[in-house]
């Protein structure tokens, strides 16, 4: 029998090539080019190498660093609200939806998931109208239940603008953790639950003691997805508050700060070099966050063979 001389399996390379090429061209190359661009600056004769000067400006010059830390702190608050509100609600909804005997489960599932597929611009605009002190339905709805005094122009106040926007984003995206957890819950075999029932573990305690440990890896994935999405967020804030992320930069997050710097705004001319420096800093923040998760948490989550 003839034995092939080479055991190299060319087909692997051939099949991988399209994805690798496309991904490299549209993701990897621009990413590294952005990192490279952050080391340059505008000289009298065009682009000149500047080393880490842009980062020194970003972290050393109070005009820049104040904006950067403000944006980063706002970003953490944005993320915290999502973790504290979006994910618990998502898990609770999934738990309720997967409960046997719930009628119209399919309808609820779709209704809650629909906002996720809406455009940020529509969501931002719709909520701005709902919360508008002039035409909005929020003041009159509160008035109908006698709570008119609770209403405030939330999007226009420094103390409440960012939290309001974070909650709008939660409203939009609560369907995603719900769907992922729902799928994880469905994959738990009935035998386990039945066995637990025989041992007297039912209802809520079945959820806490049996289901929750089994879906913990999914919750981990959702957390990291939320982290990455939140630190890359830009659209909703831009659609609702504009590039200056008012009032007084209280809703400014890294995405809007990057946009203002890179593309310029009104009389401020765009600065692609400082913009790249901010983009690199964002990349670093996300990279560190993901690494902490991967090495610190992911490896410690106990997995059960189902």
């Amino acid at each position: 029998m003839h034995k092939p001389r080479s055991r190299r399996r060319w087909h692997i390379a051939v099949f991988l090539a399209p994805a690798v090429l496309v991904y490299s061209a549209v993701m990897i190359l621009p990413l590294f080019d952005t990192l490279r661009l952050s080391l340059f600056t505008e000289g009298p004769e065009g682009r000149v190498f500047a080393g880490l000067a842009n980062f020194r400006t970003l972290f050393g010059d109070p005009n820049w660093s104040r904006q950067f830390w403000n944006a980063l702190a706002n970003n953490f608050w944005f993320f915290l609200i999502h973790m504290a509100v979006q994910n618990p609600i998502g898990i609770a909804l999934a738990a309720i939806l997967s409960a046997p005997g719930l009628r119209l489960a399919g309808f609820y599932r779709s209704a809650i998931f629909i906002p996720t597929i809406l455009s940020f611009v529509i969501v931002g605009f719709a909520w701005k109208l709902i919360l508008s002190p002039i035409w909005g339905i929020a003041p009159s709805m509160l008035d109908a239940v006698g709570l008119k005094s609770w209403f405030a122009p939330w999007l226009g106040r420094e103390e409440t603008a960012l939290t309001t926007l974070a909650l709008i984003s939660v409203w939009q995206f609560v369907g995603i953790p719900m769907m992922l957890i729902y799928a994880a819950l469905l994959s738990i075999p009935d035998e386990i639950l039945e066995a637990a029932e025989c041992d007297g573990v039912t209802g809520w305690s079945a959820f806490w003691k049996i289901k929750l440990p089994l879906i913990l890896p999914s919750i981990g994935i959702i957390s990291i997805l939320t982290f990455v999405a939140n630190f890359n967020a830009f659209d909703l804030i831009y659609a609702a508050q504009g590039a200056l992320a008012g009032p007084n930069f209280s809703s400014d997050i890294l995405g809007t700060f990057l946009y203002r710097t890179f593309f310029g705004f009104q009389l401020q001319l765009g600065d692609p070099y400082m913009g790249s420096a901010i983009a690199s800093a964002m990349f670093a923040v996300i990279l560190v966050g993901v690494c902490i998760y991967l090495f610190g948490i992911q490896t410690r989550i106990r997995r059960y063979q189902l």
Binding site: P133, I134, W135, P139, R157
Partner: peptide, 16 residues
């Protein structure tokens, strides 16, 4: 200015 002017946008003002 009107009630809740803090959250009033430019088109809102024009319409008012």
């Amino acid at each position: 200015l009107g009630d809740g002017f803090e959250a009033q946008t430019y088109p809102d003002s024009q319409n008012l």
